[in-house]
Amino acid sequence: MPPILVFRLLRGTFRWPVKICVATTLVSYILSVITGNCSQVDRIWTFMPTVYTAYYALLPLWPRSPPLLLWPYTPEVVNPAFTQRYSPRALLMLGLVTIWMFRLSYNTWRRGLFNLYDEDYRWAIFRKQVPRWFFEVFNFAFIAVIQNIILFLLGLPTHIAALQQPEQLSTSDYVLAALALVDLLVEFIADNQQYSYQTFKHEGVKSDKQWPGARIDWTPRDVQRGFCTRGLWAWSRHPNFLCEQTFWIIINLIPLVAPESPKYDLPPTSMAPIWPIAPALVLCTLFFSSTIFTENISLSKYPVAYRAYQSRVAMFVPFLTPVWGLWLKVLGKKEEVDEIIYGQNTVEHTKRD
């Protein structure tokens, strides 16, 4: 990154967010070393994007100098035009991201992942697959540093919106906000269906306190299969991941498709045009690579059933699932694959499945 760009980032509206990003990176890494648990960033993932979003959406609220260490503030060098009144677009985005935060925090809480010693099962598996020194480097470089940078990037769309000063919201704002709310609702349903399935799988009982959309009559065959294939999961192998990426793509688009031209608190360099789409690109790349790793783990546990699931149901986009079903029908394999994935008759499974 050119020195002039670093200087401009630190002197303008990025000064406080950069300080917070550095602080959360150091704290999460130190805690991961002390506890032997690499999921410390996962616990702040639920609210840090909202913190960055709130900072930009509420720029007029902050003092010109911090009264306390790490207290949010707006440096004197920031253009007063952006600190004298609130941007309705940025406030709308703050509202959407806050709803996103409550959904994710609730799902994280009920799964017990706010415990400092509860670690994502994937890190434990990855730790066994690589040399110790490599995992320690990976823990610092990727888990601590890069993921905190991604959290910082998720606030950039609201930064752009905060520098736009429309008198009122436009049609695109209302349309994209409605799509974002629908997306969050679908993601909430996907989370609930997965939680309902996992509860039945591990406890063997159906809870009477399930959210609407997750009241599925699970069977012993579902448990034998080992993973959820009903509800939204019959159409997408990762409907929650699809919705998560879609939500941040929508957030990214809100200030970019608005009638007002995007404004940046950046010097005029060749890098400037890629900044507005960086959050969506980086997040989708992260989710895709993470999904590949997750599916490799599932394949090792359920080689026959999960391979059939992959051949029948799309990874993300549900519209492809009927196409793949049609292709399996042409090959004469659809009935066999459907029985493995959706069948409810109890069967004896071998260890390979």
Rank of each mutant, 00 (worst) to 15 (best):
M1V: 13
M1A: 15
L5N: 07
F7M: 14
R8W: 11
R8P: 02
L10Q: 05
G12N: 10
V22I: 15
A23P: 12
A23C: 07
L26Y: 01
V27C: 09
I34V: 15
N37G: 03
S39H: 07
Q40D: 01
V41G: 02
V41I: 09
V41H: 07
R43Y: 03
R43N: 02
P49S: 09
Y56D: 08
A57C: 02
L58M: 14
L59C: 08
P63F: 00
R64E: 09
P67K: 11
P67L: 11
L70S: 09
L70E: 06
P72L: 01
P72Y: 05
T74H: 10
P75Y: 12
V78G: 06
R89W: 03
M93H: 02
L94P: 00
G95D: 09
V97S: 04
F102A: 06
F102M: 03
R103M: 07
R111N: 14
Y121L: 11
A124C: 03
I125E: 14
K128N: 06
R132K: 14
E136Y: 12
E136N: 10
V137A: 13
F140C: 10
A141S: 10
A141I: 13
I143F: 11
Q147H: 09
N148K: 03
G155M: 02
H159L: 06
A161G: 07
A162P: 01
Q164K: 07
Q164F: 02
P166Y: 08
L169M: 09
T171M: 12
S172V: 12
S172G: 05
Y174I: 11
L176N: 05
L184K: 01
V186A: 01
E187C: 05
E187S: 07
N192A: 14
Q194H: 09
F200P: 01
F200Q: 00
G204L: 05
V205T: 15
K206N: 04
S207Q: 11
K209V: 05
K209E: 13
Q210E: 12
A214S: 13
I216M: 10
I216V: 12
R221V: 02
R221Q: 15
D222P: 01
G226C: 10
F227K: 04
C228I: 06
G231P: 00
G231K: 01
A234R: 10
F241K: 08
L242E: 01
C243Q: 11
T246P: 04
F247W: 12
F247M: 05
I249G: 00
L253H: 05
V257T: 13
E260D: 14
P262W: 03
K263G: 00
Y264W: 06
D265L: 09
T269H: 03
P273D: 04
P273C: 09
L286E: 08
L286H: 02
S289R: 06
S289E: 03
S290Y: 02
T291H: 13
I297Y: 13
S298H: 11
S298I: 12
P303T: 10
V304G: 04
V304A: 10
V304D: 01
R307M: 07
R312L: 15
A314G: 14
P318S: 09
W324K: 14
D338R: 01
I340G: 00
I341P: 04
G343V: 13
N345P: 00
T346R: 13
V347K: 12
V347I: 14
T350G: 15
T350I: 08
